[in-house]
Design a protein around this nucleic acid. Structure first.
Lengths: 148, 148
DNA sequence: ATAAAACCTATCAAAAAAGTCGGGATTAGG
DNA sequence: CCTAATCCCGACTTTTTTGATAGGTTTTAT
């Protein structure tokens, strides 16, 4: 029941991006430096977000990445799902699966489903803007999501 | 954000145990057979539950395991925590840790904490008895928690 | 004594996650 | 055009976690 570092770094990166994009697209190099991440690794994370339509890239000198939408229109659930895949503690509770031998008549399935719904609710009712507002009183966001 | 099979098998095992213990302690061999698990592997899972005080073992012939408490007094949260460790999507939200560089003043920490609380609430408000009641209409519980 | 059962430690294998590397494509500015 | 900044991508390696096995030891009812 842990989130991967992918999710945490990805979230960290997109928050950093959101908070620094006023002067145009933000180069990954800068994010990597500020957040103390490998630039190469960061490219993979941001690449996933670009393909998912969360950020837009501008190539060439003075290029970088910027949010594809307003921070208030990007939920944390969307970010986490991009980084992590569907948020479901067990496969069994997916709506469209055939993975449970017992089909929909499994007595424990309802429990997994409750869990899945609750977790998704928490993720989906918070947006990037909410986090940014909460961050205003902090000079740096480094370390907030780091390992160890 | 997935539960390990450890948790799912462990839950499966303790449900099986709960539903078959009327005639005294249930040998692991029987559970393993019914639920199609390796007996050796099952020992590890049940061993963890014994050490955590969820089940009691009786050695020797006609021995086996039984619940240490009433099914209504064993929450799913307790079971999952035994099998999986603390239920916290990120280390950062633990109450007692020093893992975040920014200490308790991290703007994102509140979010992780919300998430942690919600997930634990879902796990803790359901007991083994609840599951057993829901299971009454099923002949077998095999497959309900299986992989794939 | 025997056999049924829990108990234990070490080890292994497979899978997933985390991270690295090197080169390619695009483009602004000179 | 040339250069350098930047995104882009796939292949690879390393590390960690998970799942599982194997083989023995201890306890105890009969």
């Amino acid at each position: 029941m842990k989130l991967s570092t992918r999710s945490r770094y990805g979230l960290l990166a997109i928050i950093d991006l959101a908070m620094h994009q006023k002067g145009g697209p933000v180069p990954l190099r800068e994010i990597a430096k500020r957040q103390n991440l490998s630039e190469n690794y960061l490219e993979h994370l941001v690449g996933a977000m670009r393909r998912a339509g969360l950020v837009q890239s501008v190539r060439g000198p003075a290029g970088g990445d910027r949010l594809a939408r307003q921070p208030a229109d990007i939920s944390l659930g969307e970010i986490i799902r991009v980084m992590e895949g569907p948020i479901a503690p067990v496969e069994c509770s997916h709506l469209d699966d055939e993975k449970c031998f017992s089909g929909t008549d499994c007595f424990i399935r309802d429990f997994w489903e409750d869990l899945r719904v609750e977790v998704n609710r928490v993720f989906d009712t918070k947006t990037l803007k909410d986090l940014m507002d909460g961050a205003k009183s902090f000079k740096t966001i480094s370390g907030c999501l780091s390992e160890d």
